[in-house]
Design a binder for these strands. Structure first.
Lengths: 100, 100
DNA sequence: CTATTATTTGGCTATATTGCCAAATATATA
DNA sequence: TATATATTTGGCAATATAGCCAAATAATAG
């Protein structure tokens, strides 16, 4: 396959892979409701600080979220809300496999 | 977190994870153009028969594709083309992080 | 029935991912 | 400065994933 085509596929797969983990998907859906600091996400997710931080780093590297340090806290926001429009389709997949 | 909510997130993450691999994403995009037998996909992907078969099984388990055996060949089709509408957004993520 | 073609499955190794703990860093506050 | 809080980083063990080969299965042709 063409190298350039392959590179695009790899990049897209990376984004999808970042979304393809329950904790990270939960974080993305939470961020869809607005900015959250790491500490809030830690409480909601119920995992170790370091674990959540690593998930956030991965999402950031994939280009899905953005961080903003203010004082001693770091706030994360969803960079690409268009991802959420996906979710209806994904839900269609899981309920039966029909979609428009 | 609520068990039911968690189950939905897990299921959605499973679909996204299935799409989050270069070879599988390639297969999905190829199937978007129409039905393909395993043998065609093997040629296009350039991996072992068994490897492609396992990717297809995984996509099938995630509810993304469907198979249909006719004669000695197995044809796969994309079960949820709505997934493709995603791709513009995913491409937006990889080019710069802006999306509508 | 035998041989051939298409596909899947089992088994294995290499590699990647996950998640915890502990330590490091950064910022704020006393 | 010392201390507390927020977050990231390093390291590690457990688990999962990817991809190859070889073997099993299924369908067809001879």
């Amino acid at each position: 396959m063409d190298d350039r085509v392959q590179a695009v596929i790899d990049a897209k797969a990376k984004v999808l892979k970042a979304l393809g983990h329950p904790t990270r998907l939960f974080i993305v859906e939470e961020l869809a409701r607005g900015e959250r600091c790491v500490c809030e996400l830690v409480k909601l997710v119920g995992a170790d600080f370091s674990t959540v931080s690593k998930h956030l780093t991965l999402l950031k590297n994939a280009g899905v979220v953005q961080d903003d340090k203010r004082g001693q806290m770091v706030f994360y926001t969803l960079k690409v809300p268009c991802i959420l429009r996906f979710m209806d389709c994904i839900e269609a997949v899981i309920v039966s496999g029909s979609c428009k």
